[in-house]
Design a protein around this nucleic acid. Sequence first.
DNA 1: TCTGGGGTCCTAGGACCC
DNA 2: TCTGGGGTCCTAGGACCC
Length: 401
Amino acid sequence: MKKQILHVDVNNAFLSWTAVEMLKDGSKLDIRTIPAIIGGDEAQRKGVVLAKSNLAKQVGIQTGEPIYFARKKCKNLQIYQSNFSIYKKYSNDLYNLLQEYTEKIERFSIDECFMDMTEYLPKGKNLLQVAYEISKRVKEELGFTVNIGVAHNKLLAKMASDFEKPNKVHTLYEEEIERKMWNLPVSELFMVGRKSLPKFEKMGIKTIKDLAKKEQSQMIKIFGKYGKMIWEYANGIDDSEVVYEEEKPKCIGNSITLPYDYNNLEKIEEVLVALVEQVTYRLRNSNMLAQVVNVQLKTNEFKIYSHQRKLMQPTDNTKIILEEAKKLIYETYNKTPIRLIGVRVDKLCEKNEIQLSLFDTTCEKQTKIDKVIDNLKGKYGYDKITRASKMNVDKNIKFKD
DNA sequence: TCTGGGGTCCTAGGACCC
DNA sequence: TCTGGGGTCCTAGGACCC
């Protein structure tokens, strides 16, 4: 039986949600109707475009580009700061509304959901009618608009939701692939990024149809697994399921671009402490243990070095992970100016999956300290409680909760 | 490029085992 | 050692997504 899939994608999510929040706060201005972007803090060297209004898009502003360039393209561009706690709230509002239609919802990102409606179509309604109903309700009840892709698999639903925007519903059934999808440039295909584009061009692949018409064996020969996947995508083939049960994270990371390049291991270490504290806090909150610690340094020339090491035992202990991270930093740092520092814990496992007896007794004291601090953070706010070491960190750096 | 931050997945190469 | 072949595990790096 064919699957009945919807892909719901919020139009200009961060910008729309900011607009709705501002209107709710009494603003007379709807920033969706002017050239506007959501961006990071330029003073903190995080000045990239995170979202744009349609008018900003019309002058050629692109997501991910430096605000500096965006401003050049548009003199009267309005720039608003991102606020992820607001985005999370609106994302949840959307998810709750969608849940009235099916329990099989995959939260693909903060602003995108896949819905498997196969066993959940209401009597007398088809998939397309449900899509229109959702579209209308989201706009009326939540105040922002979505694009909805209607198809028989996830890939085609996702491609469909990317057609004309905003506030549109599009179908992409198998018999429509040739007419609606094959004429698009191959760069529009999901999972075709800027690195593979030049390679495709050399092979004479310009459109999705060009890719679809290549021999699959040739694509596999050149690109391996990746080649197989995108050839199937170009042909509208995708049998993956909507993953509606919440999955445990596989890694947890935190990184920060520094306000200026660091040349000094001590300063790097101070930042590292704050990053590790946040990562291990989240790790404990998710009831997981880490088996691998990874650190990452980005130089002023954007070269990225990373080092990782497997731990003797899985842990969620701040001190153990910090010690490992410090060692890794010593091994990674080669005295070039550092632009970004990152810490990640990897190969996570469930806490109850492993034997805790030995682990518990060897670092009982540290575990208790972590617990006390976590409780205080939970009670008074993450940023209100801090270890003494973090007090020394550059006052210019704004860490995240 | 004056180029963020959070993830997932894949691959190549080396170490080590029998 | 002028050293085979297959398998697993580990690390570094890179591609892609939003």
